[in-house]
């Protein structure tokens, strides 16, 4: 890699620089992509010094605003988040390693590129502009079971899964102004564009992550199943926000990571949660209905079982 390094101090300066260069925040993903020649660029725009984007602000009933430059480690330590959104703390603690949490940012975590080994390796794959998804008929153990085609990545972000379950919104700023979109609309499937994972266009920057005020009485948890005890991406992860009443789930949401090209939530699944009895038979019936529409590949059928079992574990633990 070889490039010039530009360090604007305001977002306006970034826009003036044009849209061709990658934005560099924590760098934990970008450095790897550049070292591996996946991203080739002659300049890098360091946005670390942009003012005001590294704060967490409690806006009362308007929720909590998290700046994209907040470091993962600082998100974990933040008292407001600890008090009002323990799910996010629990999720953030699952990210990568202590060093990477000290380096990586919230914005970078949700905008990171996939970990697919074909994408990261010496394969001219469809996500890099080629015409083949090598995971098809290849080594697809870690690939998606739903929502795939023509590319079959899974989205690697932990935070995005929790943010989805929390109904968070993402503020995007460009030269033309600002817009705010629900997390669900921020991420896209390969069928819409197989070369990117979200709606960001060149020249657009994530400027806020907005957590709506959380309703009272919900239990939350994030289970991340990984092969190594720590410092690993999710094979499958589940973020749950549930309200229970005795042996009954009143209502709730389940969001999944590791199953699809973007963090995955299904209205149908969440509807079925409403009024679900937590006796073994009902829970089994519920979980075995999950991902009935999945289309696993040769080597990842286990993910269907795993996702169902993790939900079972969550309901057993929370309810």
């Amino acid at each position: 890699m070889q490039f010039s390094y530009i360090q604007p101090t305001s977002i306006e300066e970034v826009f003036k620089l044009g849209s061709a260069a990658p934005l560099y925040a924590g760098g934990t993903d970008l450095i790897g992509l550049m070292k591996d020649d996946i991203i080739k660029t002659d300049k890098v725009i360091n946005i670390k010094k942009l003012k005001g984007l590294d704060k967490i602000e409690d806006k009362g009933n308007k929720g909590i605003e998290i700046g994209p430059l907040v470091k993962i480690a600082d998100l974990i330590e933040n008292e407001t988040i600890q008090e009002k959104c323990p799910l996010l703390v629990q999720t953030a603690k699952e990210i990568a390693s202590p060093q990477l949490r000290n380096m990586g940012t919230v914005g970078g975590n949700i905008c990171q590129r996939p970990r697919c080994w074909y994408y990261r390796g010496d394969f001219d794959c469809i996500r890099k502009g080629g015409d083949t998804c090598y995971a098809v008929g290849g080594e697809n153990k870690y690939h998606c079971i739903i929502g795939g085609g023509p590319c079959f990545i899974v989205h690697p972000s932990d935070l995005a899964v929790a943010l989805l379950a929390l109904d968070a919104k993402i503020e995007i700023t460009s030269e033309n102004g600002q817009k705010t979109v629900p997390v669900n609309d921020f991420f896209i499937l390969p069928e819409d564009d197989e070369t990117k994972e979200n709606i960001l266009e060149p020249g657009e920057i994530v400027t806020k992550i907005i957590l709506p005020e959380q309703a009272k009485g919900f239990k939350t948890t994030y289970i991340k199943f990984k092969e190594r005890s720590s410092w690993d991406f999710a094979v499958v992860s589940v973020a749950a926000v549930l309200k229970t009443d005795g042996n009954m789930i009143k209502n709730g949401k389940l969001a999944f990571g590791g199953v699809a090209p973007h963090p995955w939530m299904e209205a149908e699944i969440n509807q079925k949660l409403t009024g679900l009895n937590t006796d073994e038979a009902s829970v089994d019936a519920f979980t075995s209905s999950l991902f009935h529409n999945a289309e696993p590949m040769e080597k990842n059928e286990y993910k269907v079982i795993l996702a169902r079992n993790l939900v079972k574990r969550i309901i057993d633990n929370l309810a």
């Binding site: 080994w117 074909y118 390796g121 010496d122 394969f123 090598y134 008929g137 290849g138 080594e139």
Partner: peptide, 12 residues
């Protein structure tokens, strides 16, 4: 892990 279709290692 070697990709059988390309003969290349996927995890280096």
């Amino acid at each position: 892990i070697v990709d059988i279709n390309t003969g290349k290692v996927v995890n280096t």
